[in-house]
């Protein structure tokens, strides 16, 4: 099989297939959908990474633990404040991810960026209910898609592929949102809370390990934060503009010749 076809199946077709089947043919109970979507992403993740090291060794090896922990927190504390445990889980994961870099080269800038990511995460987890009114799956798939392109252009096709899988899983729900003209969403607060930490962790990995420039990373962090903060049905447009801006900056500053 062509390596490029393999990349497409791993990152797009498999997660869309599993997530789509779950949405249209699977159980209607949200808890099962969240678990199914997490499983769809984990299947793609396992195939893309060739199964992560246990215990984790590299940055991407922590992602399945983050997803499982986020799901567990949302499942256990369904009607209680979830932002604090989720923030702690995100902080712990990002610290573990960035630790090898800080170990070899202590850097206040990297530590500062880590803190900003955690603060942004905390804000997003607190406002997750608000996100459901602004087509969250569409917004998240735009963000994940933008970051996937930026990561692939910036240096890591692996991180780009993991994000493509995230964009694909949420993209299925985005299609359902678009079909209802952005009036309804089958993507619950629980789904938002499970997948947002994953997006933020992947943004951190892209920034620290895949040489994603600061300006692009800042736009891709601002994209979900502003997209959720603004109470407007079409706030996905803000995410689209910011994500496109992040990719555009990379294209403007970099070598545009095809490499992969």
């Amino acid at each position: 099989m062509s390596p490029y076809l393999t990349l497409i199946i791993q990152g797009i077709i498999l997660p869309i297939g599993v997530s789509g089947l779950l949405l249209w043919l699977g159980p209607t109970r949200d808890g099962y959908r969240v678990a199914g979507n997490a499983l769809a992403w984990l299947l793609a993740y396992g195939w893309i990474t060739g199964f992560p090291a246990i215990p984790p060794k590299e940055a991407v090896d922590w992602l399945w633990l983050l997803l499982v922990a986020s799901y567990a927190v949302c499942h256990i504390t369904q009607h209680h404040a979830r932002w604090l445990p989720l923030t702690l889980i995100l902080a712990g994961t990002l610290t573990a991810v960035v630790w090898p870099v800080l170990y070899y080269q202590p850097s206040a800038a990297v530590a500062g960026e880590l803190v900003i990511l955690v603060i942004a995460g905390s804000f997003l987890f607190r406002r997750a209910e608000q996100a459901v009114s602004v087509a969250p799956a569409f917004t998240l798939s735009i963000n994940a898609g933008g970051l996937a392109i930026a990561s692939a252009l910036g240096g890591s096709l692996l991180v780009g592929q993991l994000l493509t899988a995230l964009a694909a899983v949420t993209g299925v729900y985005a299609l359902a949102e678009i079909a209802s003209r952005l009036h309804r969403t089958p993507f619950s607060t629980q789904q938002v809370l499970v997948f947002l930490p994953l997006y933020l962790a992947l943004l951190g990995i892209a920034r620290v390990y895949a040489e994603l420039p600061l300006a692009s990373a800042a736009l891709l962090l601002a994209s979900p934060v502003i997209g959720i903060r603004v109470r407007w049905r079409h706030s996905w447009l803000i995410s689209l503009i910011l994500s496109a801006g992040a990719v555009g900056l990379l294209l403007l500053n970099g070598d545009n010749t095809a490499y992969y």
Partner: peptide, 21 residues
Amino acid sequence: NHDKRDAHLRSPDFLNSKQYP
């Protein structure tokens, strides 16, 4: 002899130079 490919080789996809310098 190709900056983009070098960045890709340094990334977590292959050498992961930040973690394994």
